[in-house]
Design a protein around this nucleic acid. Structure first.
Lengths: 346, 346
DNA sequence: TCGTTTTTCTAGAACGATCTAGTAGAACGA
DNA sequence: TCGTTCTACTAGATCGTTCTAGAAAAACGA
């Protein structure tokens, strides 16, 4: 932009008041079409690219952007098609409301730096994507007064969220596995702490994410007398599932079923099986969560949740004033595919 | 935030001037530690969450955010680990400079709506990720005077970019294939237009993206007498590669090699081969571009480009004033793996 | 002890738009 | 012709900061 070309400059050039130029951009029906045309064309001549975003944001109190809060490193967050699907749904609604998305990754290690972005960002609202309820960043946002919608159900009744019934969803899978006769399963869980390429066995208390914990409880509910072990190969990712499953498969004490708390992890487990000449559903049952597109290709039994709808719903609750609901529960569905089969008798 | 709590409110409560409160947040060495402490604590009591982002942006002329421009739908953009890697590198640098990333997807169909976000967004600079040179959104940004760095080399000498030598990179692969005796190849190309699940054959003129075109030219350069056909299964994605390759493999006229212009497409091709009992590198050669993490797992021959470095470099050019270069060429490397082998003689 | 530098703080003007309230003139109905 | 409504436009305050200059007080050097 030619330096220093503002609304005022244009107004003077045309010979009208700044308000009128502003209206030419924002309220076309407030002035005659002829004048509007004249204003817009002189604006173009002067190299004026429309009202300044910061000034508009300040005066009108609308930033024109919503923040998206992530736990973990960005690369991990996006390596899961689940996150991508969510974002796509959210972006769809955001676009509809002429709003942009502000990425706000929270590196768990560097809280200071991470929360900094949270303090500085000019946003009207924020989508909280799989961030634990007690995270300090949430307090900052609350103090700042930005509306928040989480993808996890909170305990407080005045919290906004769009989520699924994690326990019920996992219970469906648990029932399915129980019917197939499985009584010895390993659950692959996300664990940001466990760095490196080694698998570790965990206890339920060590599981950091609420939704993971709820899913495990859901499984336990329908499989009360099964042995359920928790194993993590690291962050939520294909490679972690691979690592975790390798460790399980190479151990002396193989389960009859492996459940990934996300499809990407389950797919990693399938990969590990294939590398060992094992057939999912026959030699060992594998199941996942989310039903990402690749799950169908791989024939993975999983719990489907409407990923994109979740993003869309979060967007609507955040941006659409006509949406009254603050708490939306989305349906889930057990999708049985080839990767699950009866437990071998022995 | 308690409504109406501003710098001024805090200043009055403490009994100092607004400037001093501002300094407490931004220039700690401009006031005594004791006073700063007093200001910060009363601010907390009053529920003041720090300087308003919009006001700060207006006054200081810095938005504290850079835009990231995408062609295509967001979901497609992120389904490629290449995009994710780029973004991760960019985010790394952005975090270093306390800057956030503003996602600005451009739906190719709805230019009006898409460019709208481009006009509204409060950003200091923009990363142009795989957007064709002539896109209207770029003109808008230019008029607005925001600095831009593209991931494609432009023709104008005053353009900023961080890129690879596409022709040279593709030529390396072409040479490799030529040496292996391949003279009949199919290139899987990205094609936003081709919707649905059917593969189409294309001409070089129909290829929309500059980088794709350059890669094809690079292949042709080293394989002057080979038959090179272009096939697209849709957007740049695993599924498109799958669809395109299925069509090719099921046709009467199989090539001896399939080249995906991105690894995700090449991986789709491998999937299609496996489903038909074909072994990559033995029955048919498959090669890709980018060297995403999965390429190694799959044993895919590909052209490696430093994905994350690209994001980092774009970030530096955008944000680090001490970086002088405006045009950075990154190195590429041919990575030979099991998926490429000699062409069968006949 | 007196000027000079340094530290610490302040007054008041921007930044570039939008909003509220209101005015001048045209159009209208009787 | 007169009062009323509507249309088209404007003046001036305001959003919440940060910045530029500068002033008062404290510290310093000789």
């Amino acid at each position: 932009m030619s330096p220093g070309v503002t609304l005022k400059t244009v107004a003077q050039a045309v010979g009208v008041s700044p308000s009128t130029v502003s209206n030419a951009y924002n309220k076309p029906d407030q002035l005659s079409a002829a004048l509007r045309e004249r204003i817009l064309s002189t604006a173009q001549e002067l190299g004026y690219a429309g009202p300044d975003a910061s000034a508009r944001a300040l005066r009108s109190g609308k930033a024109g952007a919503v923040g998206v809060l992530f736990t973990d490193k960005l690369a991990y967050a996006f390596s899961d098609p689940y996150a991508v699907g969510f974002l796509a749904g959210l972006a769809e609604v955001a676009e509809e409301f002429a709003t942009s998305l502000l990425l706000m990754p929270l590196s768990s290690s560097d809280i200071q730096g991470g929360t900094n972005a949270v303090q500085q960002a000019a946003i009207d609202a924020a989508a909280i994507f799989c961030v634990a309820g007690g995270h300090p960043a949430l307090d900052i946002l609350r103090t700042r007064g930005v509306a928040m919608v989480s993808t996890d159900r909170g305990d407080h009744p005045d919290l906004s969220w769009v989520a699924i019934d994690e326990v019920e969803a996992a219970a469906k899978l648990g029932k399915h596995l129980a019917r197939l006769g499985h009584r010895d399963i390993v659950v692959l869980v996300d664990n940001a702490e466990a760095a490196g390429s080694r698998a570790v066995e965990m206890t339920l208390d060590e599981v950091g994410y609420t939704d993971c914990e709820l899913r495990i409880r859901g499984l336990q509910k329908e499989m009360p007398d099964a042995r359920i072990r928790l194993v993590s190969g690291g962050h939520n990712a294909f490679s972690s599932g691979l690592i975790g499953a390798e460790w399980v498969l190479d151990s002396q004490d193989r389960p009859t079923a492996i459940v990934g708390l996300s499809d990407v992890q389950a797919l990693g487990a399938i990969e590990a099986m294939k590398a060992r000449g094992l057939v999912p559903g026959r030699d060992l049952t594998v199941a996942g969560f989310d039903d990402i597109p690749q799950a169908e290709t791989a024939g993975l039994t999983t719990i489907r949740q409407p990923i994109k709808d979740k993003g869309r719903a979060v967007g609507r609750v955040l941006l659409d004033p006509s949406v009254e609901e603050r708490q939306i529960l989305l349906p889930t569905e057990l999708v049985v595919r080839a990767s699950s089969g009866p437990a071998p008798r022995n």
